[in-house]
Nucleic acid binder design. Structure first.
Length: 114
DNA sequence: GTATTGACAGACG
DNA sequence: GCGTCTGCCAATA
């Protein structure tokens, strides 16, 4: 069993828990996935994640609520569009974390942990 | 084994 | 809110 795969699984699970219309940050996802300080690894895993999973990667932003991709980039525009479709207002490659910030629910975390 | 890069985070100004 | 610097960890060259 590859532990690496397990970490990735945990990350994917955590990202999948993010509700529509809400956004989270890499650091938070990494923390919830049991990888404190490994926010970069989250990004790498997400990019390496299979499309079959339909992972809501677009709901994962920086800690400041800014889009991780470069402004005007294809991926960035796609992410922004997806977020807007879910009701998340994106302004200048940035979302209002104060309003759309997602806080993990204990029930969901508990459910995924065991 | 060292240097560079990356879908990052936090502190400072 | 924005740019810069430092710290962190993993993958890549």
């Amino acid at each position: 069993m590859n532990f690496d795969q397990q970490k990735a699984q945990k990350i994917w699970q955590t990202v999948c828990l993010i509700l529509a219309g809400k956004v989270s940050s890499y650091g938070l996802v990494a923390d919830l996935a049991g990888l404190p300080g490994r926010a970069r690894m989250v990004g790498r895993v997400l990019q390496h994640a299979p499309s079959e999973m339909q992972l809501p990667w677009h709901r994962v932003l920086r800690s400041n609520g800014q889009i991780a991709f470069a402004p005007g980039s294809d991926s960035a525009r796609r992410q922004i569009e997806l977020l807007r479709l879910e009701g998340v207002e994106v302004c200048r490659n940035r979302v209002k974390m104060k309003r759309y910030g997602w806080l993990p629910q204990l029930d969901e975390l508990l459910q995924m942990k065991f």
